[in-house]
Every structure is written in C-alpha cells, then in structure tokens.
C-alpha cells in the first residue's frame, strides 16, 4: 500500500436534478466515489436509485434537462465545466461506455466495421486500411466468431450477445482509461451474461482499465467489483470492499438485496420481490432515512433524522443502527 495510484474518475458530492414543470426532481443527492486504474467499482441499487444518472450525467449522457452540481473529475480535471466540444474528446477516447440494450445501441443502417472504424478515425487513432485491421483485431479481442465476415454485416444480423461484444469493442477501441458499463448484461441470457462479464474482467486486467459497473443485480456486481457502492433514493447507503460488503452487509437495505440473490441461488422458483414495498417516489421522499418505510429495523429516530454515511472500519454505512458483523 505504498503508493495508491491517482483515481481515474472522482465524484465528490455529485448532485443531479431534473427541472420540469412540477419543480426540480433530485435524482442524485450527493454521491462521492473514486475509481483507480485497474479497479472495478460496482454500483448497486434498484431502478430509480440514481446510479446510472450519477455516472452518465457528468458526461452529459443523461436526459438533456439534467442539471449537475458538485465535482466530477477525470484524471484530476473537472468535467462539469467542459463544453460539448471538449466532452467529445473525452467520450469514446478517454472513457468508453456500454449501455443496457445492445439491440438498440448500434446504428441500424451502418455495418459493424463501419461503426468501429468511425470511432478510430474520429479520435485519430488509425485511418483507412490500418483502421480496418484494428477493427478486425478488436472483434477478435472480444471473441466474436468469424470477425472478418462480421465487419461487413449489419447490426440486425447479429445476436444480442454478439452486439454487446461489438459495443464493448467500440467502447475500448481508443484504449480509454475508464469503462462505464450501465447494466451491460441485463438484456442478455444468463450464459451470455457470464461470457460478457468474463470478457470485461479480462479487458480490465490486460489494459489496467478502470471499470464502473452499474447494475441492479448483486449477482453481476459481485463477480467483478473490488469495491461496492449501494445506492438508495439518490444516496450512497453503504460502500466498502466487495469482500466485506458481500460477507457482512452493514445496511439493512444491502442485507435485503443480498438475501434476494441468496434465495435465488437456493431455489429458482422462490418468490422474487424480497424487499417489501416499492422504492420511494423521488418527489415524495420519506422524512429521515429514505429506507425507513421498508426497513424491518426502523424506529422513531429513523423517521425524523437522516443518517450520514459514517466510516466503520474499511466500509461506510448510512444507518443509525448498522448491522454488526
């Protein structure tokens, strides 16, 4: 632990809100996290917890009405002050993105090769025949079968898993330092899921790639992440090394999420929604701890006082009564 490398991406007190006729809607209410080279950070939470917004909004990939506050730095340089033109030199070149739905994330009327070569040429990494060869090598790298033929195929001729591999190839085409994968396996079959995760793990080691893996599924995150952030209603409620969080969750919400996959491993036909109730409406957040209406351990104090994220050994938990290991 002599020299910790500087973080690739750092968010400090990041706030994301959407302005609409009904007033502002706070999607992310102060998130702090850092990712270092070769490290994989997993972000877990139910849909609507703000986890995708926290990672996409600093790069202006959330909805256009999003307002972002706080600090977001890439290699120590602020992202939020950059204009669209400057961001275009960051996106795709220094940061690669992989989204949830591989079926709709490729432009339908352009061939696979075309779209990979386009990124390489646009960011000045290669031109012409050299770019084509690099595209071919990338398709090899992401283990697509018969890559030479795939280059000239259209997206609709590929399966979902194949397309996600193509999208990963595009995301890492320019050797970015950071890969942000937003629910990369959610739309895929379970077997394909495992292959795609294995591919991400391999790329990360080979290229010392910093990876942020956003998922609602603890099962997915636990396979890859070194550190885990659990988000609820726009806030981080628990963070820590994956081994610690997975083995002994400190927040009741983390415990409930984990219990869900444990149960799924036991019996596939067990009833699915393991946490009673629904995630709160962002416009009607409960007072105090946002999780209290669904928490089995909630007491009066939880209803009135919002818990801060407090360090507890290697991890931090935002709960008045954390579960003791």
């Amino acid at each position: 632990m002599s020299s910790i490398p500087a973080p690739v991406l750092e968010l400090r007190d990041l706030v994301v809100q959407f302005v609409s006729r009904e007033g502002p809607l706070v999607a992310v209410a102060g998130v702090t996290l850092a990712v270092r080279p070769g490290e994989c950070v997993g972000i877990v939470g139910e849909s609507g917890a703000g986890k995708s917004q926290a990672l996409l909004a600093p790069f202006r990939l959330a909805a256009s009405a999003a307002q972002v506050g706080g600090i977001a730095q890439l290699h120590g340089e602020g992202l939020l002050a950059l204009d669209e033109h400057a961001l275009d030199r960051v996106r795709g070149a220094q940061v690669g993105f992989v989204f949830q739905d591989p079926m709709s994330s490729l432009t339908p009327h352009r061939t696979i090769g075309d779209q990979i070569i386009e990124v390489l040429e646009h960011h000045g990494r290669a031109r012409g025949q050299a770019a084509r060869e690099r595209a071919l090598a990338l398709l090899h790298k992401v283990r697509i079968d018969d890559p030479a033929r795939r280059l000239d195929q259209y997206p609709h001729e590929l399966s979902g898993g194949q397309r996600q591999r193509v999208l990963i190839a595009i995301a890492v085409a320019c050797d970015p330092a950071l890969l942000i994968a937003d629910e990369p396996t959610t739309a895929l079959d379970v077997t394909v899921q495992a292959e795609v995760l294995a591919l991400l793990a391999e790329l990360r080691v080979e290229r010392r790639l910093a990876v942020v893996l956003v998922s609602h599924d603890f099962g997915v995150v636990s396979r890859l992440a070194d550190r885990i952030f659990v988000m609820y209603a726009g806030r981080v409620v628990e963070e820590g090394p994956a081994s610690v969080v997975l083995a002994a969750p400190g927040h009741p919400y983390t415990a409930a999420l984990l219990a869900c996959i444990a149960r799924m491993d036991d019996a596939l036909d067990a009833p699915l929604p393991p946490i009673p109730g629904q995630p709160p409406e962002p416009r009607a957040l409960p007072t105090g701890c946002a999780f209290h209406p669904r928490c089995p351990r909630a007491v009066v104090r939880c209803r009135s006082e919002s818990p801060a994220l407090v360090a507890d050994g290697p991890r931090a938990v935002a709960c008045h009564f954390p579960l003791s290991p």
């Binding site: 990939l61 994330s105 490729l106 432009t107 990124v119 999208l167």
Partner: peptide, 10 residues
C-alpha cells in the same frame, strides 16, 4: 443509438 453515438464522442 444516438445516445450511444454521443457516448463515442462523435
């Protein structure tokens, strides 16, 4: 796919 293209910095 347009958001994806924006994410590639095009």
């Amino acid at each position: 796919y347009i958001r994806a293209a924006r994410a590639r910095g095009l």
